[in-house]
Structures are given as structure tokens and as C-alpha cells.
Amino acid sequence: MNPPLVEVLDLTHTYPDGTEAVRGVSLCIRHGESVAVVGANGAGKSTLLLHLNGSLIPQNGTVRIGDYPLAKATLADIRRTVGMIFQDPDDQLFMPTVAEDVAFGPLNLGLPPDEVERRVTAALHRVGAAHLRDRPPYKLSGGEKRLAAIATVLVMAPDILIMDEPSSSLDPRARRTLIELLAGFHHTTIIATHDLDLVLDLCTRTIVLREGRIMADGPTRDIFADEQLLAVSHLEKPLRLQACPVCGRDAES
């Protein structure tokens, strides 16, 4: 079995206003796994994800990414290994044009200009956004912004991709494009989402969070078959696993 790539041990996090967002979470993710983190609003998904690339430093417990324990000194290495795609692409695209935005990370790594250029072109091609390269980000549609945001992360060649609600506010076509794109990735992926149909398509393993604790952790199919677990976690079976409203037949189970 692959060695653990992401290892979280007894992590807790309390926000300054007293909200205990994460209360003693332990998990271990191996190379090449694609894992969904699901749960109700406020279950601690985003807080957990923010720990995985060092945007938050553990108050209690430890986080290890690959060979590095997460600490101030290792932040640079960890951030190169872990690519984070934020919920709102507007937060992530801050440069004047898409190409400059994609180049932002590699330039900060100190790569030479022609290497940066090569990587930018490759990353934009990878997400199918080559035609957007000279457009200013504020003029893009939601789906295009999402693709550009993914390119800004891919260009850093991360081992791990972390996504917070990647399919939120996308139209069905853009969502499908995104799913197809992500299905083609061989990265270790961690996706926090409410879109359980997307989980069904992309993740073999699902972690259910509830009130800052792990309720369940197992193969996606098993988790989605446990209706009681889904109900207490404020979740529903993915639509495709529910009975068809027209003919009353189970669609895909």
C-alpha cells in the first residue's frame, strides 16, 4: 500500500469567536486517492481543508503532508505540494489577465521566464482555456473563471489538489465540463462539496463530517447506501441513486 500522503492526527480548531469548527479529526489519505469531504453547512469542511495547505496552522494535533509536518518553516514546501482551489474564483484570480494570473505562482517560485511561459500554456491547454489567456478575469463567465482558477493551481504541478465546492454556481454544462476535466486528473484529490452526484462521479472514498467530527469514512457507495447516516449528517442520497420521479424505478443502484 502507498505510504500516507496526507496524515491528520487529532486536529482541533477553535475560531476566535469560540466556534469549535474541527474537534479531533484524524484521517489518512494515500497517494492517488480521490476523497470527498461532505457534511452539513458548518460541519467543518472548509476549516479542515484550510489546514491541509497551511492556510491555518493546527492549534492542537498535527498535520503531515508527504514528508513534512505542517509548521511555519515548511509552509513553502507544503504549498508547492498542495494546490488549493477556492470556492469563489474571484478570490483566486487577482492579476490583470488570465495568463498573468496563471504565471503568478511559477514566477514566485523563481522559475525562468521561458519555463513559466511553457507551463502557463500547458496549464491553460490542460483545462481547455487557452483562448482565455489574454482576457481580464472579471470578464469571464463563472465556468471560465473556475477553469482559469484550476489552471492557476495546476501550473504549480502540485501532488495534491484540494477543492472547496468546485461545482457551486456553475451551470449544468460547465459542471459537466468540470467533472470530465477532474476525472482526467491523476492527482490525489480532496473535494469538499454538497454536490453528491459529483462525488459519485469522482471520488472512491467519502468522509462525512458532522459538527467538527468524522461521522463516517469509507467507500463512497457504502456511505451513500447508509440512509440513516446521511439523514443525521443533513445529506441526501445523490439524485441518481434515488427513485425516478416519473416511473418510480430505482435509477442506478
Binding site: A76, M84, A103
Partner: peptide
């Protein structure tokens, strides 16, 4: 700021 830090921002914006 978080998003910038995640991509190695250190106070200097570099362009190519």
C-alpha cells in the same frame, strides 16, 4: 491574501 500566499506571494508581484 490567502490565495496569494498559497501561490508563494511574498510582497512582490512579478510579471513576465
Amino acid at each position: 491574501h490567502l490565495a496569494m500566499r498559497c501561490r508563494g506571494f511574498d510582497g512582490t508581484i512579478r510579471t513576465c
